[in-house]
């Protein structure tokens, strides 16, 4: 058979494209459920990790139900939105909305010790690294100021450099840092190239060789927390 005829080439490529498209669609559809479940469980694990609770993919759901006792949704003015489920909100989609007033922000509330009144408040973060998105969760003490824990992750930062943001060594630096200064002005947490001063409660060390990722992380923390600023300030005022 002459495989060089135009008609043969057309038929050949048409069949090839259709067969491969069908195969890919089938694979993608049939694996959708386990994939989405993995993403959901990873989200739970990340939320738990931000309050320093270790979980495995197997027990994440159970532990999540036990410790994350409630959740709520707020807007950028700090007003509570009814009829919205915090866990279903995808921060990436919210940040794409043009009007800031329309964006919804979830808050997860964790009760680390059963029967105790101590509650930690967890908020999600999302921003840009060097190669792709970076994201994370940060939890706050009931004073809505002191960071209780945090977890960061990334899509494809350089291993050994920017990718270090998901190591415990880097994340531990944030514990105990504060996001409001003494006159209650929002300062966020700076990430300092060359290292933060030891007594600076608003800054941590950047990653050497990972400058753009560090800067992206700093911007992410600042931008995302500033969306919660109103909500935090309101609650602070109530508690004082």
């Amino acid at each position: 058979m002459n495989t060089e005829k135009n008609s043969y080439i057309f038929i050949y490529s048409t069949i090839m494209v259709v067969v491969i498209a069908a195969a890919l669609t089938y694979v993608s559809q049939s694996l959708k459920e386990p994939q989405e479940n993995n993403i959901r469980i990873e989200k739970m694990q990340n939320i738990l990790a931000s309050v320093n609770i270790v979980s495995t993919p197997k027990n994440a759901e159970e532990i999540y139900k036990k410790f994350i006792t409630s959740s709520l949704v707020v807007n950028s003015k700090g007003e509570k939105i009814e009829n919205a489920i915090a866990f279903d909100i995808n921060l990436a989609d919210e940040l794409k909305k043009e009007k800031i007033e329309e964006r919804l922000f979830p808050v997860y509330i964790c009760t680390p010790n059963e029967g105790d009144s101590l509650q930690l408040y967890i908020v999600p973060l999302r921003g840009k690294g060097l190669w792709g998105p970076i994201w994370g969760y940060m939890s706050f003490q009931p004073d809505f100021n002191t960071i209780a824990g945090c977890v960061f992750d990334h899509k494809g930062e350089t291993p050994g450099l920017g990718a270090e943001i998901n190591t415990a060594v880097f994340q531990k630096q944030f514990f105990g840092k504060q996001i409001f200064d003494t006159v209650n002005k929002f300062t966020s947490v700076g990430i300092m190239k060359g290292g933060a001063k030891d007594d600076d409660i608003h800054a941590v060390d950047a990653i050497s060789g990972g400058t753009i990722t560090s800067k992206g992380l700093e911007a992410m923390v600042k931008d995302c927390l500033s969306s919660y600023q109103e909500y935090f300030s309101k609650n602070k005022a109530q508690k004082l």
Binding site: I9, S13, V17, A23, S28, L31
Partner: peptide, 30 residues
């Protein structure tokens, strides 16, 4: 495989395989 479009055919096969491998990894070894 027609000689004139062999590179395209190779590329399509490779790309399809890689996507399938990626999807399976995502579903079972996240």
């Amino acid at each position: 495989i027609p000689n004139r479009i062999r590179i395209i055919v190779q590329l399509v096969v490779v790309a399809a395989l890689v996507i399938i491998v990626d999807q399976i990894l995502k579903a079972y070894v996240y």
